[in-house]
């Protein structure tokens, strides 16, 4: 069973690397969008699903990283340094916000994420001379080795795979277990001697780092930034993706990204009312499948195994 799973994953990854050989440039772009979205969703789910924190404004970290790269490069900075600077700035924001956030819990935590996040958005939106205001920054230069669409595709794929692997390792490390423990039951985690505030802060910082990486991936994919990428609706969108996929599983946000990006892409060819369709999907998920796609599949399989055991 375990062995099959590994071979299956290797096959999917190989297929993903070879995809540009058979797919057109539009399909490649959609796949890139899935990789960017999936990494971003994983970074949110790290604090939301595992850490149990109501992070309502994850988009800020993607946004500041993408803007940091764009602005640094625009002021004639080195492209590679810019790409490293992005996640660093995201971590900086994550740390400063995190220090205040971990003092709160529950809905108050969520509200402060919204307040701080919208503060960043409002500054970016209004500081026209520095950030380009509502227009954003179009046609951001990329390094020479990312000049073709295939190269950009492979880059978003590699960034996604490496980051997802690292996040998986962190979640299954002793630290990851502690984070999950604080997420499930703060008081109990504290009573076994865990410093829950520090753990939650570390969780937020790591999450902002990976969101920052996804910001760089976003620039590679879209080659432009606009204030929309750090508006609260962007954060809500990614929450929906995590929920539809399943917030208590590792692969949930990835599957959610695949499903939502594909539905959005396909539906947008027929209708302008994509929000309506997404709203219905979310409504149905919340009412009938709160564990998400992956969660409910796992539950089904689990039920079957349990049922099989009963018969034996």
């Amino acid at each position: 069973m375990r062995f099959d799973k590994k071979i299956g994953m290797l096959l999917i990854i190989t297929a993903a690397f070879l995809a540009p050989l058979v797919l057109g440039s539009y399909s490649i772009l959609v796949l890139s969008e899935i990789f960017v979205t999936a990494l971003f969703a994983l970074s949110l789910n790290f604090v939301l699903g595992y850490g149990g924190m109501l992070q309502f404004h994850q988009a800020v970290f993607l946004g500041v990283s993408a803007y940091a790269y764009a602005l640094f490069v625009l002021h004639n900075g080195s492209l590679i340094v810019g790409a490293i600077l992005g996640p660093i700035i995201a971590v900086l924001f994550g740390t400063v916000m995190g220090v205040f956030l971990v003092r709160l819990s529950g809905i108050y935590f969520g509200m402060l994420t919204l307040a701080l996040g919208q503060l960043v958005w409002a500054v970016v939106f209004r500081w026209y001379s520095f950030t380009g205001g509502g227009n954003g920054i179009p046609s951001i230069p990329l390094p020479g080795f990312l000049s073709t669409s295939t190269e950009r595709y492979e880059a978003t794929l590699i960034i996604f795979l490496v980051s997802a692997f690292l996040l998986y390792k962190i979640i299954n490390s002793p630290f990851g277990l502690l984070l999950r423990a604080t997420g499930e039951n703060d008081t109990r985690a504290e009573s076994i001697g865990a410093n829950t505030k520090t753990i939650r802060l570390a969780g937020l910082i790591l999450s902002s780092f990976f969101a920052g990486i996804s910001g760089i991936s976003y620039v590679i994919y879209s080659q432009s930034v606009s204030p929309d990428i750090l508006y609260w609706k962007k954060s809500a969108e990614i929450l929906v993706i995590c929920l539809v996929g399943g917030i208590y599983t590792f692969s949930g946000p990835i599957i959610g990204s695949v499903v939502i990006v594909l539905i959005t892409t396909i539906a947008s060819q027929y209708t302008e009312h994509i929000a309506f369709i997404l709203g219905i999907i979310l409504l149905v998920s919340v009412l009938f499948m709160p564990e998400g796609i992956v969660g409910s599949i796992k539950k089904r399989i689990g039920d079957r195994i349990a049922a099989d055991k009963k018969y034996k």
């Binding site: 929906v240 929000a275 997404l278 709203g279 979310l282």
Partner: peptide, 13 residues
């Protein structure tokens, strides 16, 4: 999240 789904549905409706 249920109330958020209504935001999407009402906005488009």
């Amino acid at each position: 999240l249920l109330t958020y789904s209504l935001v999407l549905i009402f906005g488009d409706s």
